[in-house]
Computed example of a mutant assay.
Amino acid sequence: MAAKQGWRFDSTYDHKDSTGEPIPFVFTLGSGKVISGIESAVRSMQVGGTRRVIIPPSQGYQNTSQEPIPPNFFDRQRLFTTIFNPTRLGNGEGSTLGTLIFDIELISIRH
């Protein structure tokens, strides 16, 4: 998240399978389950490419069911409490509350 109080809330490199290999985030383009900023970025990427994407709130989390979501309950809670903070939204801070920065590496595409 990019803000005065930004922090790293998740990394797929931290999620390992039984052999210790990182488990990539897998999703279906156009499913609506992923925040639109990630969908937009991935559509123009090539396999093997990496990209840093700054996602404004309008293309970020619109609700708490959109992915990617950190697996740890407390990280999820902190993420959504920050983005959907009623007091700060009421103070007109909504334009900055949900700004996200993702470093994306496109591993593969399945058709």
Score class of each variant (00 low, 15 high):
K33R: 10
E67W: 00
S31Q: 04
I38C: 04
G30T: 01
F73G: 03
G48Q: 14
I69E: 08
G37P: 07
G49H: 11
F74K: 02
F27P: 01
S36M: 05
G32Y: 03
D75W: 01
T50S: 15
R76Q: 13
P56N: 08
S58M: 12
P71F: 00
G49A: 14
G37R: 00
G49S: 13
Q62A: 06
V34I: 13
F74T: 07
G30C: 03
G48M: 13
P71I: 00
G48S: 15
A41F: 07
G48D: 15
P24L: 13
S65N: 02
V26M: 14
R51Q: 14
P24A: 07
I23F: 01
Q62V: 01
I54N: 13
S36F: 03
N72K: 08
I54S: 12
T28V: 15
P70D: 02
P56Y: 08
R51D: 03
T50Q: 15
V53W: 03
F74R: 00
P22R: 11
G37H: 00
Y61L: 01
Q59K: 11
D75H: 01
P22E: 15
D75E: 09
V34D: 03
A41M: 09
G48Y: 13
G48R: 15
P22L: 15
S44I: 11
P71S: 07
S31N: 05
F27D: 01
F74S: 07
E39M: 05
P24N: 10
R52P: 05
S65T: 09
G49R: 08
Q62N: 06
P70E: 05
S44H: 10
Q46T: 13
E39T: 06
D75C: 03
M45F: 12
S44N: 10
I54V: 14
D75N: 05
R43M: 05
L29N: 01
Y61I: 04
G32L: 03
D75P: 02
F73R: 08
S58W: 07
P68K: 14
N72D: 14
T28W: 09
R78L: 07
G60A: 12
V47K: 10
T50H: 11
I69F: 06
